[in-house]
Simulated assay, not measured.
Amino acid sequence: MSSVVKLSCQCGNVQGALKVVKGSSFHVKCLCCDCQSYASKLNNEDLILDEQGGTELFQTYPAYLTITQGHEHIGCMQLSEQGIFRWHTTCCNMPLGNTMRSPNMPFVGISVKWMQFSDEQEKERILGPVTMKAFGKYARGPMPHDAYARFPLSYMPKIIGFMLKGMIGKKQSPSPFFKDGKPIVPAKIG
């Protein structure tokens, strides 16, 4: 069973659709210092981060993501030369998704803030509950009681299985962020 979620940035310039396929995703919250730094660099912390400094992400396959308009408003940032690609809008500085640097990796962590839902109940019905909160040691204020201090190693078998399933099913392509094996825009470092 699958659902389609409409995507729209804050100003409406960048829009798209996400196919949500049961068993092909993870709904997570990341409290790491890199995600917090990224929100700061976009000058959009109030929109992106929750009160504890967490970023809500929906991790799935690039093949399930389509950008229907606003390609000219897409930018890419890396926090370091070896860092992941962090895709965002250049119009309203909204995060879109995170990918590995290689177009061959079947992974995209999509910002839930980009998704359009009528209410929290619809969001949870379609995405499911947050199943993991990682890097709680970086939380603003006390670490949430239901968060892991770091990334939990117990989650690795799920991630490996997800990546293998994606590679076998060639779910890395098409990707709205890569064309002909290259990023659609050069990544800015810093």
Rank of each mutant, 00 (worst) to 15 (best):
S2T: 15
S3W: 12
V5K: 03
V5T: 03
V5R: 04
V5N: 02
V5H: 03
L7H: 03
C9K: 02
C9Q: 06
G12Y: 12
N13E: 13
L18H: 07
L18K: 00
L18M: 00
L18R: 00
V21W: 00
S24Q: 14
H27I: 03
H27K: 04
K29D: 01
C30T: 09
C30D: 11
C35S: 11
C35N: 10
Q36H: 04
A39G: 10
A39D: 12
K41E: 09
L42W: 11
L42V: 10
L42Q: 11
L47Y: 13
L49W: 05
L49G: 02
D50F: 04
E51W: 01
Q52E: 14
T55E: 15
F58C: 05
F58R: 03
T60V: 01
L65E: 05
L65C: 04
I67F: 04
Q69D: 11
G70F: 04
H71V: 12
H71S: 15
E72Y: 07
H73P: 01
I74D: 00
M77T: 12
S80P: 05
G83F: 03
G83A: 15
G83I: 06
R86C: 00
T89W: 01
T90C: 06
T90K: 09
C91Q: 05
N93A: 10
P95H: 06
G97Y: 06
T99R: 03
R101C: 11
N104P: 01
N104D: 13
M105F: 12
F107L: 14
F107S: 08
S111Y: 05
S111G: 14
V112F: 02
V112T: 14
V112L: 05
K113A: 15
K113I: 07
W114H: 07
W114V: 02
W114D: 07
M115L: 08
F117E: 07
K123V: 00
K123C: 11
P129G: 11
F135K: 00
K137P: 06
K137Y: 04
Y138Q: 03
Y138L: 03
Y138N: 15
G141V: 07
P144S: 03
H145P: 06
D146F: 02
D146T: 05
Y148E: 08
Y148S: 14
F151D: 10
P152F: 11
L153F: 09
Y155F: 13
M156V: 15
M156S: 05
G161N: 09
F162W: 05
M167W: 15
I168Y: 02
G169N: 13
G169F: 00
K171E: 12
S173H: 13
S175Q: 02
F178A: 05
K179V: 08
P183D: 09
K188H: 10
